[in-house]
Design a protein around this nucleic acid. Structure first.
Ligand SMILES: [Zn+2]
Ligand SMILES: [Zn+2]
Ligand SMILES: [Zn+2]
Ligand SMILES: [Zn+2]
Lengths: 143, 143
DNA sequence: TATAAACTTAGAGTTAACTCTAAGGTCAAG
DNA sequence: CTTGACCTTAGAGTTAACTCTAAGTTTATA
């Protein structure tokens, strides 16, 4: 049986975060001492680690909540249920990557266009591009 | 001279956002009517468009603020000043992309491992992976 | 003149996931 | 018995960039 600080050390979370997860409905200490101290069993530890793993992969706290409800009642859920959540998350991630790749390309083009030197910015092509308002259309250019 | 609603329509922002940008120090109406209505000149419009362009590329409001202070006083700034901001932003973007690619790979591996079918999740390999806590180490696997 | 659309301000609410604070109780060691 | 580390709760603060509300004013139109 671990106290919250020990669990925190063990999992690499903070006690604050663990309490936050409790408030969010993700975890619960199996036991409380008379004085109110939380005590965690091995089973609790595994659940916290599940949460940590899922969060690290990128699942939201809400997703993790859903995944946990599947976890405690696997026989009443299907692989489809699980892949649905996972696929939705992958779609999110793909979309964010697309947006960031667009930004990346634009930023690279801007950087390539500017000398980056110690001279006055009066002729700076980055500033010009930002003023031109078509800086947003990165063209396919020989990298 | 445009009123804020017209400027909003023209730029695709909302009047709320334009006021927010004003509060953030990014823009200012050149004129106010006696009753307090904001009136924007062509120069103002260009500045708002600059802001919009920079925001779309991914620069933070703070970055845009800095870029604007360069813009109004180009001769006292250098190309280096501009590339510094741009490079820092590119670094941010690159880092986020890396994180997301890691998530993406993990999610893909999870999805590949699961049948996704209507059967009970009791044997689901995604759930197992989340429990295993080494789901986080996507290995280089034949795509 | 009356109505509606558009405008004004100050300030609160939203989102996600923490992160921290205050004020106080508990426990092991010396 | 006292010190210090650790624990408790409720609730506020953080971040970024909006987004919205309330209550009231102005302007254009019919
Ligand atoms: Zn230059
Ligand atoms: Zn330049
Ligand atoms: Zn299956
Ligand atoms: Zn499965």
């Amino acid at each position: 049986m671990l106290r919250i600080g020990e669990l925190a050390t063990k999992t690499g979370l903070t006690a604050h975060t663990i309490r936050f997860y409790e408030k969010s409905g993700l975890i619960n200490a199996s036991q409380r001492s008379e004085s109110g101290y939380r005590y965690y069993t091995d089973t609790d530890v595994r659940q916290v680690e599940f949460v940590k793993t899922a969060r690290k992969i990128g699942f939201s706290v809400d997703d993790v909540s859903t995944l946990l409800s599947i976890r405690v009642d696997k026989s009443n859920h299907t692989c489809h249920d699980v892949t649905e959540i996972t696929q939705r998350k992958l779609n999110d991630v793909n979309e964010k990557i697309s947006e960031l790749l667009l930004m990346q390309q634009t930023l690279k083009i801007l950087l390539n266009s500017c000398c980056g030197g110690p001279e006055s910015a009066t002729h700076c092509s980055i500033m010009e591009a930002l003023d031109a308002s078509n800086a947003l259309k990165p063209r396919i250019i020989a990298e």
